[in-house]
């Protein structure tokens, strides 16, 4: 069993560490509707973990639980070996969890550079007085963080649009800027909510490459929701399958592909 061992090496040579985040018996209800029902799974350090399922399965709700938007009625969230008390989203961000949204949530009025710089806000601590006078820490901090941001900008190949207001960019680039903003925070865990939705094949290939590169170069743990099965099976180390708020499968892409419950959920099942 892979769950019990400390760490292992994947066929392509990456080392997957111990458990980084663990969801224990999460149940989330909105009034009478149960969006998530008693789901447990873990995310290990350095892996790419996919959450898949048909529409309305509760995948995005799960991501919202992780990032602190929703607070589950039952169950526990464990992060880095500690049980996490109920937190506001900004506190979760300060813990080192960054995310992107299904429908892009960029700051339209700001340039690409400023957008990516906002990703560094959790690392910026200069006081109001220092900032008002632009002396000491404020100035040094700005330059320091700019250097880190420029590395991300190089990495995602968006140098040429650095000073363009985000509102003017096409969809695919916006998605990439959003990824850049999340990466700028240097997160331990990166949550991607449908990073390839609405993209053509080439854009999907680019984005897949970036996801793999991020995982490889920065060692960032990634949890992603995606509908494109080809992408999911190629990218991820392990897959959680959800349907109607329940977990119906969990394992390597091959395990999941051959799981009868998963096949039934996706292809439908005859009731005779």
């Amino acid at each position: 069993m892979k769950d019990t061992i400390e760490s292992y090496v994947t066929p392509d040579g990456r080392t997957i560490g111990g458990v980084l985040m663990e969801m224990k018996n999460i149940t989330l209800r909105f009034g009478g509707v149960t969006a998530i029902k008693d789901i447990s799974f873990d995310i290990r350090e350095g892996e790419i973990r996919a959450i898949i399922g048909p529409n309305g399965a509760g995948k995005s709700s799960m991501l919202n639980v992780i990032s602190g938007f929703y607070h589950p009625q039952e169950g526990e969230v464990w992060f880095r070996g500690d049980r996490r008390p109920p937190m506001k989203p900004y506190q979760v961000a300060q813990q080192g969890i960054a995310r992107t949204f299904q429908n892009i949530a960029l700051f339209e009025g700001m340039t690409v550079l400023d957008n990516v710089m906002t990703g560094r806000l959790t690392h910026m601590r200069a006081g109001m007085l220092a900032q008002a006078l632009w002396k000491g820490r404020a100035e040094a901090e700005e330059t320091e963080n700019r250097e880190k941001v420029e590395k991300i900008i190089d990495f995602l190949e968006i140098q040429s649009i650095r000073k363009t207001p985000v509102g003017r960019l096409p969809y695919g680039l916006k998605k990439r800027v959003e990824l850049a903003r999340a990466l700028a925070a240097e997160p331990m865990l990166l949550l991607l909510d449908e990073p390839m939705a609405g993209m053509n094949v080439e854009e999907k290939e680019d984005m897949s490459r970036f996801v793999l590169d991020v995982n490889d170069e920065f060692g960032t743990t990634i949890a992603l929701i995606e509908h494109d099965m080809g992408v999911v099976m190629d990218l991820s180390d392990r897959v959680v399958v959800m349907d109607y708020g329940k977990k119906i499968g969990d394992g390597t892409p091959d395990d999941v592909r051959n799981n009868q419950a998963v096949i039934d959920a996706y292809l439908g099942v005859s009731h005779d």
């Binding site: 990032s67 506001k88 989203p89 900004y90 961000a93 300060q94 960054a98 995310r99 949204f101 949530a105 960029l106 700051f107 339209e108 009025g109 700001m110 400023d114 710089m117 906002t118 990703g119 560094r120 806000l121 959790t122 910026m124 200069a126 109001m128 900032q131 404020a138 901090e141 700005e142 903003r181 999340a182 925070a185």
Partner: peptide, 20 residues
């Protein structure tokens, strides 16, 4: 950074919260 916090809140408060 102060100005970026303000502008982030202005442009999209939910996204601002998610980046900390």
């Amino acid at each position: 950074s102060m100005g970026r916090r303000w502008m982030a809140i202005r442009d999209m408060d939910i996204a601002a919260e998610i980046i900390g």
